[in-house]
């Protein structure tokens, strides 16, 4: 069992990182949301695999919540917002795609160097995934600062949260259930508020480009 489980967990962790790179690579808003949903699905399955191989039942709940909220509900909400305000389908990065990809690769190397000592001393079966989850966090941050539209920034935040969740899973088999529930609630509220914000930004400026927010002064 152990060999197969480790293979499956490693494969899903690699898929989460791969989807983070896809989020950087894609130039379409709709694809961006779909890829984010795929990443959350992979993360949910990863959590389920960890739950199966360790036998901790609370990880099952977290896995189910991840798939339900992050892979189904949140993408739906973002889609609704995009339909309501008729967002153009282009991502509008402020760093061009090939350079973005190379920067994301550099961030992945950085994450590996930072995480390597921790991996050596880690005892959980998922310790190897720590470097990948740090890379996902950094790439999420990079998406937030290098994309102009408000919605892409929301997705960057969600990607960071996915990375943090995977880091928690890989270091200590997840946080206590009550903390996880709090984080989920947080994320839901954040997405709803961001949805309203995006709506207001669009109403005020007729665009989602956040660089226009600099005009918000007297």
């Amino acid at each position: 069992m152990a060999e197969l489980d480790v293979n499956l967990i490693d494969g899903l962790a690699a898929l989460v990182l791969l989807t983070a790179f896809l989020i950087v690579a894609t130039g379409r808003m709709r694809t961006l949301v779909r890829v984010f949903a795929l990443q959350s699905l992979a993360l949910g399955l990863l959590a389920a695999a960890v739950a199966y191989s360790t036998g901790y039942w609370h990880i099952y709940i977290v896995a189910a919540l991840t798939i339900l909220l992050k892979a189904l509900v949140i993408p739906r909400i973002i889609d609704r917002v995009m339909d309501r305000i008729q967002v153009a389908n282009d991502v509008e990065p402020s760093v061009r795609t090939p350079s973005s990809l190379l920067i994301a690769g550099g961030l992945a190397i950085l994450a590996y160097y930072v995480a390597e000592p921790l991996i050596q001393s880690g005892e959980t079966i998922t310790a190897g995934a720590l470097a990948l989850s740090l890379a996902v966090v950094l790439i999420g941050l990079f998406v937030m600062i290098s994309r102009k539209k408000a919605i892409t920034q929301v997705i960057g935040l969600l990607v960071m949260e996915n990375g943090l969740f995977m880091a928690a899973l890989s270091l200590s088999y997840g946080m206590p259930l009550i903390v996880e529930l709090g984080v989920f609630f947080d994320i839901m509220v954040a997405v709803l508020i961001m949805g309203v914000f995006v709506f207001r930004i669009n109403r005020t400026f007729d665009t989602l480009d956040t660089s226009f927010l600099r005009r918000l002064r007297d």
Binding site: A14, A25, G27, L102
Partner: peptide, 22 residues
């Protein structure tokens, strides 16, 4: 084109990286 081709490079790069990490 550079988008697609850099994508291929990053896939290969991730392959090498996952050899070392996982």
């Amino acid at each position: 084109l550079p988008n697609l081709l850099t994508g291929a490079f990053m896939l290969a790069f991730l392959a090498v990286m996952s050899y070392f990490v996982l």
